[in-house]
Each structure stands twice: as C-alpha cells, then as structure tokens.
C-alpha cells in the first residue's frame, strides 16, 4: 500500500485542485478531532461563495433523481457542482448503505461534479454532523453551488434550514406525503415545494393541497411566497421550472439583502453548535466533574439533595466567565 500524504501535503494538492486530496480532506473532516479543525482553519477563508441548496422530503420521493436532472441543468449554466448525499447509519451495526450515486450516473465522468456520500453516523437522522464542514470544503474547492440531499426522515430534517440558502421540499402524490409534510414541520422550512412523479394521477390535486396550505400562512407582502412545482424526474419534465424557482428565490435573497443575513445565521448556529459540542465533551472528560458527580450522586439517590443542587455545585466547579 502506498504511503498516504500528510495534511500539509494534502492541503497543497487541494489548492492545486486535486480531487483525491479534496476527497481525503473530507474524510478527515468526517472523522473529526484536531486534524479536522486544522483542515477547517486552513480552508475557511476561502469559503462563503457557494450557493447552498438543501433537498429534503420522505425517502422514495425521488430526491436523487431530481438532483441528477438539476445537476444537468446547472452544468449547462456552467455552475461547478458539489453534491452531498446523506444516508442513514444503522443504529444497530454502525454500518451504512450509501446508494445515491446510482441515480447520479449521468455526471460520473464530469470533473466539475463532485459527489460525496455521507453516512449520518452519530447524528439523530436527517443530516450528518459534519455536513457544514463538508459544504465548506466543497466551497473552498471552488464549487459555486452545493446541493445537499438529506435522509428524509426524522425531526432533524429541519436542520437543513440552518445550512441552506434555498430549501427544496420534495414530495410525491402517493401515501399522503402532504399531510406528513405538515406534521413534520416541512411546510415551515420549504422555499420551493416539488410534487415529483407528476405523471401520477393524483399529482395535481396533491400540489393544489400544498398550495392551499401555504396560502393559509398569511405571508406579509414583499416576503417570499413559496413556489409549488410539478416535476417528473423520470420524464425530465418541470425541471426547467424548478431551476427558475430556485433562481428566483436566490434573486429575492440577494435583492432584499437577505443573503448576508443568512450567512450570518448559518455561522452563528455553527459556532453555537460547535461550542455546545466542545463544552459537552469537556464536561465529560473533566476528572473534577466526574469525581464530584460520583461523590454526590449517593446523596441524590438517598433523597438528601435534589438533582438541581448537584448541578449548582457542578456549575461552581466549572464556572464559565
């Protein structure tokens, strides 16, 4: 087995545009730890340019096929595309089956399309914990458009709204997706709603149902009104309209000065999340905290002191200024 280059060398190769180096750096980001932070420190100044589009919706709605079609259209407009496709990690075995590339074969020989499959790993669902970092890396690698496909189940789907400029919610007419979407809160985060499989007999009425629900939301004048688009990834219809809707949303963000605001929102949420992670890790690792806990839990078990008392004592111990 050939020797693998170290991080410094990888960063040089990355700067030269070598896909293998970028791919390796993503792995380092996925694995986390100090190396991941080093990579991020080095590339962060090159980020901030990519337009981020999130795709969410139930499994089987045809998100990958839709991304495949969209990528074709965006490539015609000379966008350089990064795609992040997330699939679930099995909570029982830790293994994952990442099959989204199958649907993206049309671009597998195009050097300007970089597809990376991620397993959700420790995350509760939806997206992988390192999604932000991987987006950054693709951004720094020169991809001006990053498409993120979520797993499609669970509450954490909603996290995509904190990572993307435009959120596309993909639904299908079958199996009452519309109702599911409302329950899951997807109606609140979607900028564009896609009713895929438009050749299905119930597609139009399902789209109308979404439209009606959106109307009830009472959107103030001048604010973005979510679009509802009928597509068929299989028949390649409605894709042009979807591109138009996404671009329209982008123009709206830019014209209204929302763009910078979103970037700030994204970064604030990242700093907050990273800080929470770091604090939690430090608390877990702290011997002082562990000792105090062990010592005082007996008293909690016996009912001598309340759980809150212990927490207050711990707070004193770690006191944050």
């Amino acid at each position: 087995m050939a020797e693998r280059p170290g991080i410094e060398r990888l960063l040089e190769l990355f700067a030269e545009g070598k896909v293998a180096a970028a791919a390796r750096l993503i792995t380092i980001l996925e694995n986390g730890g100090e190396d991941a932070e080093r990579v991020l420190d080095s590339v962060f100044h090159k980020t901030g340019d990519a337009y981020r589009i999130g795709f969410t919706g139930p499994p089987g709605a045809g998100k990958s096929s839709l991304l495949n079609r969209l990528t074709g259209r965006f490539r015609e407009k000379d966008h350089r595309i990064g795609i992040i496709a997330v699939d679930p990690t099995s909570p029982f075995t830790g293994g994952a089956f990442l099959g989204d590339r199958i649907r993206m074969q049309a671009h597998s020989e195009d050097p300007e399309v970089f597809v990376r499959s991620l397993a959700s790993r420790g995350s509760l669902g939806g997206i992988s914990n390192c999604t932000d970092e991987v987006i950054d890396l693709m951004d720094a690698f020169g991809k001006d458009m990053v498409l993120i496909e979520t797993v499609g189940v669970g509450q954490s789907e909603l996290e995509i709204a904190e990572k993307a400029h435009t959120v596309v919610v993909v639904l299908v007419p079958e199996s009452g997706d519309g109702i599911q979407a409302m329950k899951a809160g997807l109606m609140e985060i979607g900028d564009v709603f896609v009713m895929n499989k438009a050749d299905h007999e119930d597609a139009e009425s399902a789209a109308r149902e979404i439209q009606d629900t959106l109307r009830l939301k009472d959107i103030p004048a001048g604010e973005w009104e979510p679009r509802v688009i009928l597509t068929s990834a299989r028949e390649d219809t409605g894709i042009g309209e979807l591109v138009e809707a996404i671009e329209e949303h982008r123009r709206y963000l830019e014209a209204g000065g929302h763009f910078a605001g979103i970037r700030r929102k994204i970064l604030r949420s990242r700093v907050r999340n990273a800080l929470m992670d770091r604090m939690e890790r430090r608390l877990r690792q702290s011997a002082g905290v562990r000792d105090l806990l062990e010592q005082r839990m007996e008293s909690v078990y016996k009912g001598e002191i309340s759980p809150y008392k212990v927490v207050r004592e711990l707070e004193e111990l770690v006191s944050i200024q």
Binding site: S65, I102, R103, Q105
Partner: peptide, 10 residues
C-alpha cells in the same frame, strides 16, 4: 424510447 435506469432497493 429512452433507457431504463437502475432503481436501488436494498
């Protein structure tokens, strides 16, 4: 007629 694309089921 177009071509059939492999669906993935696992």
């Amino acid at each position: 007629f177009g071509e059939y694309i492999e669906p993935l089921f696992i």
